[in-house]
Design a protein around this nucleic acid. Sequence first.
DNA 1: CGATTTTTTGAATCATATCAACGTACGTGG
DNA 2: CCACGTACGTTGATATGATTCAAAAAATCG
Lengths: 193, 193
Amino acid sequence: MYDLLRAHILKRVNLTDEEFARCTTFFVPRKLRKNQFLLREGEVCTSLAFVVKGCLRCYSVDDNGEEHIVQFAIEDWWISDPYSALTREPSEYTIDALEDSELLLLEKSAEQRLLQEIPKFERLFRLLLENRFVANQRRIAATLSTSAEERYLSFLRSYPAIAQRVPQSQIASYLGITPQSLSRIRKGLSEKG
Amino acid sequence: MYDLLRAHILKRVNLTDEEFARCTTFFVPRKLRKNQFLLREGEVCTSLAFVVKGCLRCYSVDDNGEEHIVQFAIEDWWISDPYSALTREPSEYTIDALEDSELLLLEKSAEQRLLQEIPKFERLFRLLLENRFVANQRRIAATLSTSAEERYLSFLRSYPAIAQRVPQSQIASYLGITPQSLSRIRKGLSEKG
DNA sequence: CGATTTTTTGAATCATATCAACGTACGTGG
DNA sequence: CCACGTACGTTGATATGATTCAAAAAATCG
C-alpha cells in the first residue's frame, strides 16, 4: 500500500526509513468505487489525496451543466483542490472516481502536524504545487495556440496511460471540445496514417 | 519604494517592523524601460520580481512566431517563471515591460537566505503560488467553457486596471483570439449598450 | 441476451481566423 | 509646430474548424 508513496517521495526528497515510517502514520487509506465522490462542489476540500490505484478526475460544471475536466489523476499522482484546502472556501470543483480506486488521504490537520515533525515535506509539497502550476501554464499556452487536433496528439504523448483508460468523452472534456469533434479528429488522424 | 511591498506582505503574514526591515535587505531595486526584458526564452529564471510601478507581461512564442500571454503584472503583483526558478531549467517564457517599470527583485540565493532568516516567508510564497495556481485553473475552465466575448467581459471584470492600460492586441493575445476578433467583439458589445 | 452508454456519422449552422485594406493616433525629427 | 512614419485599431469578404441536433452503429455491462 505504501510502497508507491515511498518511491514517489524518495524521488523528490531524501527521507530516512524512520522518517518515512513516521510519515505514513499521517495518511489514511480510503477506497472509492467508480463514480463515488471525493469532493463535491460547494464542500471545503480538507485533504490531499495520493492515488495508489485507479483513476480520478477533477472538474467544474458550467452554467449549462457541462463538465470541464481540469485534471485527471492515476497511480502515483496527487489530487485535491489546493485553493479550497488553503483558504477553507467552498470548492468550485468536483472530484470523483472514473474507476474503483485506492487513495492515501492526508487530512489538513495531519498535514500541519506532518510539516512540523518533518519539515522536509515543505519542500515536497512546494515541488508538487510548482509542478501542477507548470502543467497548467503549459496547458493554457497550448489551448491558446494550438488546434484541437494538436492538443489531442499532445495529450496522447503526455499522458498515454490516461488516454488508454478513460472514455473518449472524458478526454474531449479535458481538451475543451465535444465528443463528436474528437471522434472526427480521430477519424482524420487514422485516415492520414 | 518599499511601502507597497510592506503593505502587500502585511496583508498576508504578520511581520514585525524589524523583520520587515531585514527582509528589505534581500531585495534589489531594478528599473526597466518599456520593451526591455526581464527574462528571455532559454534563460534560467533566477529571480522573483515584485512590481512597484509599471506593467510587465510573460508570454510564450509558438512555432508560428505568435506570442501568447500567460500573465500580466502591474503594481502590487509578482512575476517570474517559478518552474524555471525551481528546476534551473531554461525558461520557455519571455518576460518584458509594457511600460517603464520599477521592480524589487528577489534573487534565488537571497530568497533562500530570506527563508532561513524569516521562515514566515515560506507561508507567504506558498500563498502566492497557490493564488497563481488558482488563477490559472480558473482560466483553463473559462477557456474550455466560454465564448471569446464572455472571456473578454470576465477579463474586464477581473482586471479592470490592466484592461485600461495595455494595448488591445495584448488583451487579445491573453484571451487567445486575434486582435481583429477582439475589435469585432467590442463593436458588438457597444452596439448592445 | 437485452439495456444502456459510448462512439460515429451526416447536415446545417455558428464563431473565429485569415487576408487585405483602410483609418486613426501618437511621437519624433526636420 | 507640422509632416511623416509607425503602431494600433477597424472593417469587409471569405474560409475554416468546431458545434449542434439528430440518428445510427458499436461497445459495455448486468
